[in-house]
């Protein structure tokens, strides 16, 4: 062991590193970015704080948030899942073509939706984890297949979504706290617990170092498999809330989610390639993306050039989170 000539210095450096790392690892950064953006938004748009505005903002953001949460499971273990677009379309049309009224019906539909999402996820998982096909290509294929099935079920936008889902699920708890926010908060709670269970830890471990994880006794294939299953479940939730919000089914409902989901995950600071990040961060990443739409509108950025700003913000956010992470794990080079 090297002698620590200046233990106090070493200790403080280590301490600083620990706090920075906590910041870098947790969803702290993206939460700050989100809050800053929210403040800006409220400043330029005072009506933003009205109960209705808050409710509609969260209702609108929730599907993307859930989709990004799902994608995070796969990205954390180092994979890639393009099937998000297909799964959302598929589940969305199934919900819209399976009329079930009332709270009981909504619950039954929820179970059906999640089961379907998990089934798609399981197929992805089998193909990627057990047949060992490159994830990006395999999920591209399953995405296309899901879109095809969605078109078989519903040729054009339509179908019916029960009034309970359309009106109750998108309302607010005691007229103040949108259910959408409650669901997002449940997502945070879920991840906080899940990430501390063995399954959650294994997910991160596999993402950091597949080989070491395998040699540590982690069943890497099963971990990969279940990451896709969880992802499918969350995509299904996204599709479910999308159906509630838009009160309709659309065989191409999932298409806009394809790139936005990955943008949201990246914005949240989850590393592509795995091992670092989390669902909470992605939830906030997606919320930030949707809030950005609001802020840009409020700032009156010429709509032709909205994309320029969006692109810049994405790059900056990723650079920022990388910079903090770099400072946190300021280790010796190569």
């Amino acid at each position: 062991m090297t002698d620590a000539t200046h233990p106090s210095v070493a200790e403080t450096r280590a301490a600083r590193r620990v706090t920075l790392r906590h910041i870098a690892d947790s969803a702290f950064l993206i939460i700050v970015i989100y809050l800053v953006m929210a403040v800006v938004y409220v400043a330029v748009q005072p009506s933003a704080l009205s109960a209705y505005s808050i409710e509609s903002l969260f209702n609108n953001s929730l599907p993307l948030m859930l989709a990004a949460a799902g994608a995070t499971f796969v990205i954390l273990q180092g994979g890639f899942d393009l099937s998000v677009a297909g799964t959302i379309s598929l589940v969305n049309v199934v919900i819209a073509t399976t009329p079930m009224e009332g709270p009981g019906g909504a619950l039954a539909l929820l179970a059906l939706a999640v089961a379907l999402g998990m089934a798609v996820g399981a197929i992805n998982g089998i193909i990627v984890a057990y047949l060992r096909i490159q994830a990006i290509a395999a999920t591209l294929a399953t995405m296309i297949i899901c879109q095809g099935i969605a078109l078989l079920i519903l040729k054009a936008p339509g179908g019916m979504v029960s009034d309970f889902m359309v009106y109750e699920l998108t309302a607010s708890l005691t007229d103040r706290v949108p259910y959408a926010l409650v669901i997002a908060a449940l997502g945070v709670v879920f991840w906080t617990i899940y990430s501390r269970t063995d399954a959650g830890r294994n997910l991160l471990a596999v993402g950091q170092d597949r080989k070491a994880a395998a040699l540590s006794g982690i069943n890497v294939q099963r971990t990969e498999f279940f990451s896709f299953v969880w992802a499918g479940a969350f995509y299904a939730l996204a599709a479910y809330m999308l159906a509630a919000q838009t009160s309709t089914g659309n065989p191409s409902a999932g298409e806009p989610f394809l790139l936005l989901t990955f943008a949201a995950v990246a914005l949240g600071g989850t590393a592509f390639g795995g091992g670092r990040g989390g669902v909470t961060a992605s939830l906030f990443g997606a919320a930030t993306l949707m809030l950005m739409q609001k802020v840009l509108f409020a700032m009156g950025v010429s709509s032709f050039y909205t994309g320029v700003i969006q692109g810049m913000i994405m790059i900056t956010a990723v650079l920022f989170s990388a910079a903090v992470h770099h400072a946190a794990s300021n280790r010796r080079g190569a």
Partner: peptide
């Protein structure tokens, strides 16, 4: 800048498209 290729090229794509949109009206 070590931006992941997925993000970098997606963002640049969005920016470039938006510029095209503005340029052509």
């Amino acid at each position: 800048f070590n931006v992941p290729p997925f993000i970098m090229t997606m963002a640049v794509g969005i920016i470039v498209y938006s510029l095209c949109l503005g340029f052509t009206g």
